[in-house]
């Protein structure tokens, strides 16, 4: 195990975070605060409680998930795409380092950053709404699991992309709609039966539902199913990455 290399990649990626602290930390915080103002303060006052939870508090887990997903994907995809774009990837490919170690460095850093952002947003939200967390350890566990899973997904996108356009494409065209339609701002139980059934094909529903359970102790989908679906997606991403390194796809000619 080349721990020096994992550490070097991790610190290199984290240094990028600190260098761009304005755009990587401040901007998600600002946009989340805006969500709170719009959905929480303005609209929320006219909303009934959902499943016994104030609407302002109800959207907190969804907002955290929204940020977690977007940030994990964009950090990890950019992290690996950029050295491919500039050509500095040659050094990583020529180093005595295994695929697992490369992924641990890049994905570890991307996940760390989005976990930090998730926690910052949680802290920010306590300024707007009173909040209590029913299962704090489960909440943290889901936070980490989601961050790692979607950072792996982002890593795959960063390998697949052959231009900055493609890098934005998947987050924009797939992840954003899935997140918004995944019950971040509402309970899928509020939907007509047909659309509720359709929603169950959306993986984000399971993430948000499980995460919400860790806050309020209740969920639309059973927690076991949620955990199973997340683990399945994690396994798919790991499989994809294993294939990338075995085949050299977009990494080595």
């Amino acid at each position: 195990m080349n721990l020096h290399a994992v550490r070097a990649i991790y610190l290199f990626e984290m240094a990028r975070t600190w260098r761009t602290v304005m755009q990587s930390v401040i901007s998600p915080v600002i946009s989340t605060s805006l969500y709170f103002v719009v959905f929480g303060a303005a609209i929320g006052q006219h909303m009934n409680q959902i499943e016994g939870v104030e609407y302002g508090a109800f959207i907190v887990p969804g907002l955290m998930m929204l940020t977690l997903l977007m940030q994990s994907i964009s950090n990890a995809s950019f992290g690996i795409y950029f050295p491919r774009f500039t050509g500095t990837i040659y050094e990583v490919l020529s180093a005595p380092i295994s695929p697992f170690e490369i992924v641990a460095g890049y994905v570890g850093a991307a996940a760390s950053k989005s976990i930090m952002l998730g926690l910052i947003i949680l802290a920010t939200s306590t300024l707007f709404v009173p909040l209590s967390i029913a299962h704090p350890f489960a909440m943290l566990a889901f936070l980490v699991l989601t961050a790692v899973t979607f950072s792996l997904f982002g890593f795959i996108i960063g390998i697949w992309a052959d231009g900055f356009e493609k890098l934005q494409l998947v987050p924009l065209l797939i992840v954003t709609p899935l997140t918004f339609l995944g019950g971040s701002f509402y309970s899928i139980d509020m939907l007509p039966p047909f659309w509720r059934a359709v929603s169950l094909f959306n993986p984000v529903v399971y993430l948000v539902s499980a995460f919400r359970w860790s806050f309020f102790g209740q969920s639309e989908v059973s927690i076991g199913v949620s955990l199973g679906m997340t683990t399945l997606f994690l396994a798919l991403c790991l499989g994809g990455i294993a294939w990338i390194f075995r085949s050299g796809y977009r990494l080595k000619v």
Partner: peptide, 27 residues
């Protein structure tokens, strides 16, 4: 390896990028 093309991380400092390489090779 010193490749033919000049590929560098624009925003890194000289010290950090050279130290990074050493870490990458497990030293």
């Amino acid at each position: 390896l010193v490749p033919q093309e000049l590929t560098t991380d624009a925003f890194e400092t000289v010290w950090n990028t050279v130290s990074f390489s050493r870490g990458l090779f497990g030293k």
